[in-house]
């Protein structure tokens, strides 16, 4: 790519989204810059997933514009530069008869294209990516036989295998136990630091996340805080979540 100098990976400008008469998102400006590990937090129903879907063109906003790699979303073609790990089990059929290897290979499809098949280089890349997320030994296992945390790591491998510049994760830790969540964040921050991968993590689980991310954005219909993780204070959260303070618990995990 000749556009390596681009530093704004995602730019959302004045996004408004309504469902019926209800305003889900109101005038959101959000940008993700190269090398950032941005945590997008907000309570359930605050519009986080909606914002991500608008970012990826899966939903049309009522107002506002999105650009990816400084190109308008409508003309953006380089989808292999974006890795997306959707909310667990939201759209994936987990009884699907595919192996871990087959699931990860899907991540290469937009790159491989027509008439082309997976070659030795692709196969090596799949192995390396599985190694990276610690799932290589499960390569030939059926995706449905794995635990929730393992499946999530496989989906991350699928998003990483095309060597994206940005990885977007929507609530990746829902239904995963606390110890696994911890290791999961360590993996993400390693990818951010060592591979210089830009990360956008969407979560309602504020406690653990703030230790790893570089920037925080708080969403509750509008954007309440957007800055570096160091400037982020718990009072920002309490003003946003109100009474619902148990989400601050660092023990938070397990099934939610």
């Amino acid at each position: 790519m000749d556009d390596n100098h681009i530093s704004t990976m995602v730019n959302m400008n004045n996004i408004t989204f309504q469902r019926g008469n209800q305003t889900i998102l109101s005038s959101i400006d959000l940008s993700v810059h190269k090398g950032e590990f941005l945590g997008l937090v907000g309570p359930n129903g605050s519009g986080k997933s909606t914002l991500i879907k608008i970012m990826l063109g899966l939903l049309q906003p009522d107002a506002g514009t999105v650009s990816l790699f400084e190109q308008p979303l409508t003309t953006f073609k380089h989808w292999e530069r974006i890795g997306y790990v959707p909310q667990k089990a939201a759209s994936v059929n987990l009884g699907f008869p595919a192996t871990v290897y087959e699931v990860v290979s899907m991540g290469l499809f937009s790159k491989v294209g027509l008439f082309r098949f997976l070659n030795r280089h692709h196969k090596k890349k799949i192995d390396e990516t599985l190694q990276q997320v610690g799932m290589l030994e499960y390569k030939h296992r059926n995706i449905g036989e794995l635990s929730g945390g393992q499946q999530q790591r496989v989906f991350i491998a699928r998003a990483l295998v095309s060597e994206p510049d940005v990885l977007i994760l929507d609530e990746p830790t829902v239904g995963v136990d606390a110890a696994t969540v911890q290791r999961f964040y360590q993996l993400l921050s390693r990818l951010n630091e060592e591979e210089n991968l830009t990360l956008l993590l969407v979560t309602h689980d504020v406690g653990v996340m703030t230790k790893y991310v570089s920037h925080v954005a708080c969403l509750q219909q509008t954007l309440h805080f957007h800055g570096s993780a160091g400037d982020f204070e718990e009072s920002d959260l309490i003003s946003m979540y109100g009474e619902n303070v148990e989400i601050l618990s660092h023990q938070h995990g397990g099934h939610s």
Partner: peptide
Amino acid sequence: LFYNQLLFIAFDENQARVSGI
């Protein structure tokens, strides 16, 4: 021609869309 694309859509339609299929 389209085995890969069809497999991806069958597995996860949204994700396939985001991958440019």
